[in-house]
């Protein structure tokens, strides 16, 4: 018993030093040296490429309707994944209806991703189909030809990893930044 305790305490000091400090701190040092951009949050001039933002009005590509659930940008740290409606929840049905009405008001035909909240609630991406659905609205609002927007979309598609993993997607911040420089 006493002997176990003594060994435990010594071993715990060793493990705290190696696993609690050396592992994450050496990892941080290497990450900062080799992958500086990613390690600090993939932050560009207008936000992180990996954290979704609220884009309202018909002149921007909209992302997943997460912003209305986590109020992105009220000065507090964003807490991810806080809303997880069940599949038989009236609140979810009403949310989807309301979201579809907002999209229609902007002249967008709703798609599945554009009316449903993501898991993280900071999903930075939309599918190419979601982007195509927004072309007529953006074209009207910005007076850009639809063909230019279609080209923009096809240039912004991130294909499936290795051609088979996950889904192809478009980063909303990335495409909107390109859109802003287009007009």
């Amino acid at each position: 018993m006493v002997e176990h305790m003594k060994k435990t305490l010594i071993l715990m000091v060793i493990f705290v030093f190696t696993l609690g400090f050396a592992y994450p701190l050496l990892g941080t040092f290497l990450s900062q040296e080799i992958f500086n951009f990613q390690a600090n949050g993939s932050i560009t001039g207008n936000g992180s490429l990996l954290i979704g933002q609220t884009w309202s009005g018909p002149s921007w590509f909209h992302g997943r309707p997460d912003g209305s659930l986590v109020t992105l940008g009220n000065g507090n740290v964003i807490v991810s994944g806080t809303n997880q409606p069940g599949p038989s929840s009236k609140a979810l049905r009403n949310f989807v209806k309301k979201q579809a009405a907002i999209l229609r008001a902007d002249g967008i035909i709703p798609t599945n991703d554009l009316v449903t909240p993501s898991g993280s609630l900071v999903d930075p991406d939309i599918s190419p189909q979601d982007a195509y659905a927004q072309v007529p609205a953006i074209s009207n609002a910005r007076h850009i030809s639809q063909s230019k927007l279609l080209t923009l979309i096809s240039q912004s598609i991130h294909p499936r990893e290795f051609g088979f993993l996950g889904n192809s997607y478009i980063d909303v911040l990335e495409i909107n930044t390109k859109l802003a420089s287009l007009s």
Partner: peptide, 26 residues
């Protein structure tokens, strides 16, 4: 981390989107 996970000891990042004027604390 190579793929995009964060690994930093710096605190939350305050960012402003100049296109929309929205600020976020990440």
């Amino acid at each position: 981390v190579w793929q995009g996970s964060v690994q930093t000891l710096k605190g939350p990042a305050l960012i402003t989107n100049h296109l929309t004027g929205i600020t976020q604390t990440i």
